[in-house]
């Protein structure tokens, strides 16, 4: 019997999870819905975006939130040549770590740059909002180069 005689079939395994986000990420997501990006400020004055539930240095619960800019700098990136279903963009894009203006940490998101030649560490990018926002990280459709 040749190997081609083996039968194949589609097999989809799906878990329709919902998860609670807690008060800190809940506040972040509520902010996104309102078109705002908020981070947490640590005792040492560092701003984490997305906000962390606890101070990264002391472990104390987060109490102070600050709004950061809607644009920032790419600190590192990787080109996605063949986007998969469910990813932020259908066309090839960059996964990037983006340090927003006023933040001390970087946020992972997609950059719609068109081609990898347009991507550069240190480049400035800005938020492109989703037309309809629901309170999810996907409210940010993606980032795009600030200067075309």
């Amino acid at each position: 019997m040749a190997a081609t005689d083996a039968l194949t079939a589609p097999y989809v395994l799906e878990y329709t999870y919902r998860r609670s986000v807690g008060p800190v990420l809940g506040r972040f997501l509520t902010g996104l819905r309102a078109g705002r990006i908020e981070g947490s400020r640590s005792a040492a004055g560092k701003v984490q975006v997305p906000p962390s539930e606890h101070d990264p240095d002391t472990g104390a619960p987060t109490t102070e939130f600050v709004e950061v800019g809607l644009a920032g700098v790419v600190t590192t990136w990787s080109w996605a040549t063949a986007p998969r279903p469910g990813q932020p963009l259908a066309q090839p894009f960059a996964w990037a770590l983006i340090k927003l203006d006023g933040a001390d940490s970087a946020l992972l998101h997609a950059v719609d740059a068109g081609a990898p030649e347009k991507m550069k560490t240190g480049m400035r990018v800005k938020v492109r909002w989703q037309a309809e926002r629901t309170g999810a990280i996907t409210d940010i459709a993606c980032f795009e180069p600030e200067a075309p």
């Binding site: 083996a6 039968l7 194949t8 079939a9 589609p10 097999y11 989809v12 395994l13 799906e14 878990y15 329709t16 999870y17 919902r18 998860r19 609670s20 986000v21 008060p23 809940g26 506040r27 997501l29 509520t30 819905r33 279903p85 469910g86 309170g135 999810a136």
Partner: peptide
């Protein structure tokens, strides 16, 4: 009005060979 929950589905789309 605060966001408390998100949908976080996991989908694994396989083709199995018998």
């Amino acid at each position: 009005g605060e966001v408390r929950r998100i949908k976080a589905p996991v989908k694994l789309d396989y083709t199995v060979t018998a």
